[in-house]
Nucleic acid binder design. Structure first.
Length: 538
RNA sequence: GCGCGCGUAGCUCAGCUGGAUAGAGCGUCGGCCUCCGGAGCCGAAGGUCGUGGGUUCGAAUCCCGCCGCGCGCACCA
């Protein structure tokens, strides 16, 4: 149980004892200014209204009522309009280093998810071209979100869904055939076709004597390329789901039949409509067109039904914001099935689009125009770790400008190096000291020697890690971890710069070695969460 | 026009489900290398949090209007 948990519980007990409402939930937070306190609570202000007493009075009553000696609290002060400020006992703070080192690679993990199955779908690119930068953002986000969920006790399955059948694949085939027919000359790409150089390359590599046709060959080649891209990016999927299998296994028809049976559909103008308005859409949507084929969201509904049937009581989709129009109707279709699928299923993590700037100009991203930057390009230019870090540095709600020249030119000053350097520095202490950090026994080390301000600040930051992981996982926001990681690195650098470890008199050296180990562990764990390497030296 | 998202330092962005004097990196200016790695550290300048109201002890944060930007609004996927 952390300091904050213990303080919160004791605050609640004290608040109830002076007549606070049963549902009071004390909020505890780190003040912006760390010199004010380690933790602060606004509970006295919150209770002022229900108790009809002045905040300052309530604060005094609570302060006199709490017993926080075994929560590591050294001092309680009342400040400002009625804040209760708690200052931790430095010895109690220092003692937590032991827990961090003992936790090691598991420090920061939680079991909130109860090992429940959750499917995280991301990238899901159709095999009609290489993966572009938007897919890169999705891959970084989806993989990090998956890791966060794993760390908080969920049984995660990473899934890649792709359409290997529809109109776009037809266009791909026609485009490749155009190049084959042109025999290396100027190909006439049909309307809606694909213009990228990769189409010509596929045509050149196609051999008419092969067992498979142009279509199968093109899909296979592009799928293989995408797999190589994801491999280069360090992302591994557990399952690949083909849209065509929905049809061959009758899943689409089953879903449609059930919607009709449930009376959720009607015929009009020769088409079959779904009553999505009943579920919050602004107008009903066509399911089956006049020509007898289904609109795209029907297989989408069938696909998400299989997620539910496969036992995933929770599903998360990472997609570009240009797909947000589909979220309402997919959810509507699932609810109309009347199978107990909850209203917010699946959950969507939508990210704004990525703009690539190169040579000072925006690079237009268009599969059809054939001019665009691929995930592989970015990795080649700035490295996998930097690409991942940049994509995870900001929240998905913000559009992202990826300035290639800047990322390349400033690679030496890249924040990811700053972060990795902090890890390498901590590791360097053990290397130079010829100490095997993983075998270090700190059970008898006197940690109370860690009294320097930089040491206390660093330890308090390390203590926050589990709460940061849980918060980021609950919000599905990996960027919180990048921010936390940079701040941790900053505090580690400051400490390292100001204080020596090796050669210091005992018990200081042993205590600082333990702290270096704890900092190394936390920084390494943040890097692992983000899918970035934690080098021992650089 | 309707829906979703976004307007915070010169630039790129944080600001944790309302808290105390608004934060970081880059850039600019000025300091620090006998040292476990200077890929680092310390300091300075830089803000009407788009704008106008509202809610309350308290608003960058919540609500409403307006302005600006992005995306989506097909019997395309």
């Amino acid at each position: 149980m952390s300091f904050s948990d213990r303080i919160r519980a004791e605050l609640k007990r004290a608040a109830l004892s002076i007549g606070a409402p049963e549902d009071v939930e004390p909020l505890l937070e780190r003040p912006r200014d760390p010199t004010l306190a380690d933790w602060a609570s606004n509970i006295a202000m919150v209770l002022a209204r229900p108790l009809r007493r002045k905040p300052a009075e309530i604060a005094v009553a609570i302060r006199d009522n709490v017993n926080l000696a075994n929560a590591g609290v050294d001092r309680i002060e009342i400040a400002g309009p009625g804040f209760l400020n708690f200052r931790l006992d430095p010895v109690a703070v220092a003692a937590t280093v032991r827990d961090i080192v003992a936790g090691n690679e598991n420090y920061g993990r939680a079991s909130d998810g109860g090992n429940a199955p959750v499917v995280v779908e991301f990238v899901s690119a159709n095999p009609t071209g290489p993966l572009h930068v938007g897919h890169g953002r999705q891959a970084a986000l989806g993989d990090a979100i998956s890791s966060l969920l794993e760390w908080t006790g969920w049984n995660v399955s990473r899934e890649f869904y792709y359409n290997d059948a529809g109109v776009q694949i037809d266009n791909l085939e026609l485009s490749v055939r155009a190049h084959i027919d042109a025999k290396g000359g100027e190909a006439v790409i049909p309307a809606g076709g694909y213009h990228g150089d990769y189409v010509r390359e596929i045509a050149l590599r196609f051999d008419g004597a092969m067992d498979e046709g142009v279509r199968e060959f093109a899909v296979r080649m592009l799928r293989a390329e995408q797999d190589l891209d994801m491999q280069a990016f360090g992302v591994k999927f557990d399952t690949y789901y083909l849209e065509s299998s929905l049809y061959t296994h009758g899943k689409v028809q089953q879903a449609v039949d059930r919607l009709i049976e449930n009376g959720q559909t009607y015929e009009s103008d020769g088409a079959l409509w779904l009553r999505t308005v009943e579920y919050g859409d602004d107008k009903d949507r066509v399911m089956r067109k006049r020509d007898g084929t289904f609109t795209y969201f029907v297989p989408d509904v069938a696909y998400h039904l299989t997620k539910w049937e496969r036992g995933f009581t929770r599903a998360i989709n990472v997609q570009g914001a240009d797909h947000h129009g589909t979220t309402t109707r997919v959810r509507a279709g699932l609810r109309a099935l009347d199978l107990g699928i909850p209203e917010g299923y699946p959950e969507y993590v939508l990210h704004q689009l990525v703009t690539v700037v190169k040579n000072g100009e925006e690079v237009k991203i268009s599969k059809r125009a054939g001019s665009y930057v691929t995930v592989r390009d970015l990795i080649d230019w700035v490295g996998r770790d930097a690409v991942r870090f940049f994509f995870l540095m900001r929240k998905g709600d913000s559009p992202l400008i990826f300035d290639v020249d800047l990322a390349r030119r400033q690679s030496d000053e890249n924040p990811v190096y700053y972060l990795q350097m902090a890890h390498a520095r901590m590791s360097g202490i053990f290397r130079v000291g010829e100490i095997d950090a993983s075998q270090m026994d700190i059970s008898s080390v006197d940690l109370s020697a860690l009294t320097e301000p930089e040491e206390q600040a660093l330890i308090k930051q390390l203590i926050d890690f589990p709460a940061e992981v849980r918060g980021a996982a609950a919000a599905l926001e990996p960027h919180r971890i990048t921010s936390y990681a940079l701040e941790t690195a900053r505090l580690a650098h400051q400490w390292y710069h100001k204080h020596h470890v090796l050669g210091e008199p005992e018990p200081i050296m042993s205590a600082r070695l333990a702290l270096a180990r704890a900092a190394q562990i936390v920084i390494r764990n943040t890097l692992h969460l983000l899918g970035i390497a934690a080098p021992e030296r650089m």
